[in-house]
Design a protein around this nucleic acid. Structure first.
Lengths: 146, 146
DNA sequence: TCTAATGTCTCTAGTAACTATAGCTTCAAG
DNA sequence: CTTGAAGCTATAGTTACTAGAGACATTAGA
């Protein structure tokens, strides 16, 4: 059995974050020791690693909740889960497209900032001037985690 | 002179966000009309477009504050701006690699779901198993905006 | 010119996904 | 058997906004 600290170290998640995940119901309530300390087994470690990796890939906790509900009922017919999986795929593809555009912009910025002074460097200019953009990112803000 | 609404529409930034940027000092306090409404000129539009664009590329407001202060004193070497952009690029490339892998898994899951069960899908396994990770992301969490 | 609709004002509170602090208890090593 | 690290709960703070309330300003149409 792992204490919360060992669990966090193993999964690469901070201790308060684990307690937070329990609080919001992403992790089940942990078993407790005689002294009221949380104890975790292998299953909890796997679940936490899953969450950690999915967060790392930019999924929201809500999306992760959906993915976990898939893994929690693996005997469900796939028809029921198909919509969730497809929604995730759409999200991933959109995220990929935006990241790819972003990468191009950053590369262009770095090439043009070839060791001069800021006055001669176009990084600032590129960020200020929409017409220099290779890609269209005029969609409204506030959607990077969605 | 632009009202806050026109400014927001031109730059692709919502009105409350502009007021928020003023509040935290990213935008200077705006001139006011006789009726106390904010009025903006071309300089404000450029500055806001800069901020919008940089946010779109994933820079934090702190990084943007730095970039703005660089652009306000353009007589230094641009290594600082370059370093900020390069750090962003590294992060973006790492995310791209991992997302691409996940996209493949999600696509395969949907194909496999044609007749099977969730238990046969490897998405959960991929996200749960650290050894299947293509890249190393063992760094502590909570740094995606830095 | 009056009026209705829309835009703007301030202020407060809420969101996601944590992170930090305070003040206490429990556990493990020397 | 003590002492220092690690754990507990609970609350408040963080970033980058977003939403709502209630009041004032501006503008287009009758």
């Amino acid at each position: 059995m792992l204490t919360i600290g060992k669990l966090g170290a193993s999964a690469g998640v901070k201790v308060p974050t684990i307690r937070y995940y329990e609080q919001i119901g992403l992790l089940p309530e942990a078993e407790r020791s005689s002294g009221n300390q949380r104890l975790y087994g292998q299953k909890a470690l796997e679940r936490l690693a899953f969450i950690r990796h999915a967060r790392d890939l930019g999924f929201t906790l809500e999306a992760i909740r959906d993915l976990l509900s898939l893994s929690d009922n693996p005997d469900q017919p796939c028809a029921a889960a198909d919509a969730i999986a497809k929604a995730q795929l759409l999200e991933v593809e959109s995220r990929l497209a935006r990241l790819t555009a972003l990468k191009g912009e950053l590369e262009r910025m770095i090439v043009q900032c070839a060791g001069g002074r800021i006055a001669d460097c176009r990084v600032i200019e590129i960020l200020g001037d929409h017409s220099l953009c290779a890609t269209d990112h005029r969609h409204p803000r506030g959607d990077e985690t969605s």
